[in-house]
Design a protein around this nucleic acid. Structure first.
Length: 372
DNA sequence: AATTCGGGGCT
DNA sequence: AGCCCAGAATT
């Protein structure tokens, strides 16, 4: 046994029991913890990637009501799956979940039971495979999500950046030793829950932490300096102009290609604006390139600012009318899968990204004003 | 190892 | 308004 392993094995004795005791009386009754099944745990873990519990709950309930098992999910249209995911973000998760369900159904297999096999599924990486394997099937594999990394970077006062593969592996190896001799599901849920509820990013509730006497960061006054992470590059701003093309009481929408950003979601045909001229002035030029038709620009909508992780957008919608018949508009928009003419009301049945949803709200408001 | 993917919460 | 947070896949 290495020196580190020995040290951890002995510290496990002091760490694990208070952790488990704490968890048993602070465990939240979450939808996926009531009547747990491998499928429900799988869906919840996909939704919980990058996303907090309170955000996920309503999405999870609606998703499970509509797709109660793998077969029903596999049989669904991707568009309907995306509609239920609308607003939750990281839509590739929904695409991969759907794809995995289809693969399993095609092969007439159930969800795999082991970490190694789960890891092969689209959308399942090291964290998710460990979470499903341990929680649904009791396999003793340690989970390291953001909560766990933060918690133990403090408990052990580790100053390596937590957002590196090396650090994640190191933590997983250390926790794997703690896992010896305890129920894997309970231990993993306990560390994630403690990180989420007590060892919070800001305002950690150290006074009520079951590990307060073992926590080195607390002892050394480092809690607020940990965890460390790499500096993030600051994000550029893109100015987008979106054409709300009206024709015969309908508007033109386009579906993004499946592998594009926000793939499979609908939006209003848009273009990046590089000049400082008024959008109404430059829009016809932009859209002649994108749509191959001339449009006349009318009133603009209020600018919508939206933040993604690696850039921000200022999205401005502009009412447009066609200078020719609508039949001329073809689907060779760069990056678009297909186009449709729909009433604003019909938009509610199709999946849109969040910025487009806000534009739809503005269009509805203007409609309402015009008719009253 | 670094970059590409959304969106929400907190201050 | 700005800062912080968080997994998988790709390159």
């Amino acid at each position: 046994m290495t020196a580190l392993a020995e040290k951890l094995a002995s510290s496990a004795h002091f760490l694990v029991p208070p952790l488990i005791v704490w968890f048993r009386s602070n465990r939240r009754e979450l939808p996926w913890r009531i009547q747990p099944s491998p499928y429900r745990i799988w869906v919840s873990e996909l939704m919980l990637q990058q996303t907090q519990v309170v955000t996920v709950i309503p999405y999870f309930d609606r998703f499970i009501a509509r797709f109660p098992n793998i077969a029903s999910l596999a049989a669904a249209d991707l568009e309907d799956v995306l509609k239920l995911w609308e607003g939750l973000g990281y839509y590739s998760r929904a695409r991969r979940l759907h794809e995995a369900a289809r693969q399993l159904t095609e092969a007439r297999r159930e969800l795999p039971h082991t970490y190694a096999d789960l890891l092969r599924l689209p959308g399942v990486g090291p964290y998710t495979a460990a979470a499903i394997a341990s929680i649904a099937f009791g396999e003793p594999v340690a989970v390291v999500d953001g909560n766990v990394a933060r918690l133990f970077s403090r408990v052990w006062a580790i100053t390596t950046s937590i957002d590196t593969p090396v650090m994640r592996r190191d933590l997983r190896d250390r926790l794997q030793l703690l896992l010896d001799g305890v129920a894997p599901a309970e231990f993993n849920e306990a560390v994630m829950e403690l990180g989420a509820l007590v060892c919070r990013p800001r305002n950690p509730d150290c006074d009520n932490c079951p590990l307060r006497d073992q926590c080195i960061a607390r002892r050394d006054g480092l809690t607020h300096d940990l965890p460390r992470r790499r500096k993030r590059a600051d994000v550029p701003l893109r100015r987008l102009v979106a054409a709300v093309v009206h024709s015969e009481g309908e508007v033109l929408i386009a579906k993004r290609a499946p592998d594009a950003m926000l793939g499979g979601l609908w939006h209003f045909p848009d273009a990046t604006s590089t000049s400082n001229a008024a959008l109404e002035t430059i829009l016809p030029g932009l859209f002649y390139e994108r749509l191959g038709v001339s449009v006349t620009a009318g009133r603009s909508y209020r600018c919508i600012r939206h933040a993604y992780s690696h850039f921000k957008i200022d999205l401005t919608g502009v009412d447009c009318t066609l200078s020719t018949t609508r039949a001329v508009v073809k689907c060779d928009l760069a990056g678009a899968d297909s186009i449709r003419w729909v009433t604003v009301a019909q938009c509610e049945r199709l999946p849109f990204d969040r910025a487009s949803l806000r534009l739809i709200d503005q269009i509805k408001q203007r409609h309402h004003q015009n008719s009253s």
